[in-house]
């Protein structure tokens, strides 16, 4: 299992080389988005309107951070559970999204879309919100401010520590439960 330092936006060459279990230190701009924001992104696409950020090579972090205390760019910012975004992810991946960041299992549809479009799914450590916030050096709301913690934020990350959970070749890191008696 390899360790890579990658910069956003990601290219197909970046994601193609990744395998489940690899460690990635991600740098550059990523976008936050979770349940309510995804619903609104779909509404914009349905109306043929442009999205608040360019999806080409983009990385979406499934996170709703806690409020930033004075003197900090952001509050605690660990991942939320990803399956709730499975209904939306294939469409965004088809439009150029290269990476999603969260925790927990993805659907077969998402895995299929990732293989087809050379996208990857990264896991960040759930419940390590204070620790992960150290790697976020800047954050600003760029859309849906009314959603509060669910607003879309443009975040700058430095060496954001991720694990490749699902790669673009059908590989998966999660342990299969041992059901033998």
């Amino acid at each position: 299992m390899a360790t890579y330092t990658l910069n956003t936006p990601l290219t197909a060459a970046d994601t193609d080389k990744l395998r489940a279990g690899d460690v990635v230190l991600l740098n550059g701009i990523i976008y936050s988005g979770r349940d309510a924001a995804h619903k609104k992104l779909m509404e914009l696409l349905d109306k043929g309107e442009s999205l608040p950020f360019d999806l080409t090579g983009a990385s979406i972090y499934y996170v709703g951070p806690s409020p930033a205390p004075p003197g900090r760019p952001i509050g605690a910012a660990g991942p939320t559970t990803s399956y709730r975004m499975d209904a939306y992810a294939p469409r965004l991946i088809g439009l150029g999204l290269k990476a999603t960041i969260g925790k927990g299992k993805r659907s077969d549809e998402v895995k299929k879309a990732m293989a087809e479009h050379k996208a990857v799914y990264f896991g960040a450590t759930g419940g390590a919100g204070a620790l992960l916030s150290k790697c976020i050096t800047a954050s600003k709301v760029i859309a849906f401010d009314e959603l509060g913690p669910e607003a879309v934020r443009e975040m700058t990350v430095k060496d954001f520590p991720l694990l490749v959970i699902n790669d673009a070749h059908g590989g998966e890191l999660y342990a299969k439960p041992n059901l033998d008696d």
Binding site: A76, G127, G129, A130, L131, S133
Partner: peptide
């Protein structure tokens, strides 16, 4: 991998206590 998660969680707990950032963003 499991031990590394415990290491991160202990570091996270120390950091949260020090900085008063929440342990987890989902309060």
């Amino acid at each position: 991998a499991g031990r590394e998660i415990f290491r991160q969680l202990l570091e996270n707990a120390d950091l949260a206590f020090e900085t008063k950032l929440p342990l987890c963003q989902d309060c």
